[in-house]
Design a protein around this nucleic acid. Structure first.
Ligand SMILES: [Mn+2]
Ligand SMILES: [Mn+2]
Ligand SMILES: [Zn+2]
Ligand SMILES: [Zn+2]
Lengths: 148, 148
DNA sequence: AAACTACTTGCAACTGAATTGCATTAATCG
DNA sequence: CGATTAATGCAATTCAGTTGCAAGTAGTTT
């Protein structure tokens, strides 16, 4: 995708299209897995990105709805762009979470975003013994194609 | 439950029954929610427990299979005793995880261990597009009875 | 009951992810 | 092209959790 394309995404989400943000957005958009702060940082070994700027950029992406974050097994945040093929499950894109599961590879600890397939859907799951359930989160554990 | 009872649990799991461990085990056993290091620590304001000892005790409980830990929304560990009514889903209690879900209250951020009821069970969920799925984890978000 | 030994404790120092404050710089808009 | 407002970079800080080590104690042996 062109720099133009990414610049527009940033501006559409109310963020200024800076060089650093473009580099981070492009990297994340092309990654098949969710990435941590340090993994992202390591991808820019020639032209380093300041660590605080990277933290702030990632937070900005999450806050404006470009990306989301998932905790890995070590409880570090991994960041992933909301993909086109993962559709928001609510009407307006405001409060509702994009409906998808996360696959965590037990071998490499990488996290892949997964569409929620039919088999993963619960049916009636409301108000279980006085607990009002709004939403649920599925974390699948196993071995990714690379590690098999 | 008696001190005798808790002492035996500790010894059965290969841990020496020390005063500190007994106090922590009793507290956790009687708690309806999973507790963080600091929450546990705050329960002993009169006779303080050393923070490192508490960390090590909690890790020991997890390693020996007395307790398990769940990350809350702030990615701090919360600890909970494996309850009697939550049955291990494997034959021997060795590798298999005790099958249960976690309910996270959006209001108070407390975590409750939940039995996995029929409605939460997926059926055929194996080898999804090259990803070998061994296990899954369900996190339910909503409002607990206390916060409604 | 005293001695022994391996495990456990408590304290200080340390680690590493993430945040905050603040002065400097750069993107956007008229 | 300024002016305005947001973003950056650096240093310092926070906070959960860990490590090393000397001193203490549970459980076992004699
Ligand atoms: Mn995702
Ligand atoms: Mn639990
Ligand atoms: Zn893998
Ligand atoms: Zn609550």
């Amino acid at each position: 995708m062109s720099e133009q394309f990414y610049s527009e995404i940033l501006r559409e989400h109310g963020l200024k299209a800076t060089v650093t943000r473009l580099r981070i957005l492009e990297l994340l958009s092309e990654s098949k897995v969710a990435m941590s702060h340090s993994e992202i940082s390591d991808c820019f070994d020639n032209e380093k990105i300041d660590k605080v700027t990277l933290y702030r950029t990632l937070n900005a992406f999450v806050e404006c709805g470009i990306a989301h974050k998932v905790a890995n097994e070590d409880r570090n945040w991994l960041y992933a762009i909301f993909d086109k093929d993962i559709k928001p499950n609510g009407t307006e894109g405001s409060e509702h979470k994009h409906e998808h599961a996360h696959f965590i590879c037990s071998a490499c600890d990488k996290i892949y975003c997964f569409p929620v397939v039919e088999e993963m859907k619960f049916n009636k799951l409301k108000d279980l013994m006085g607990f009002k359930i709004d939403q649920h989160e599925i974390r699948l554990h196993g071995t990714c194609p690379v590690c098999q």
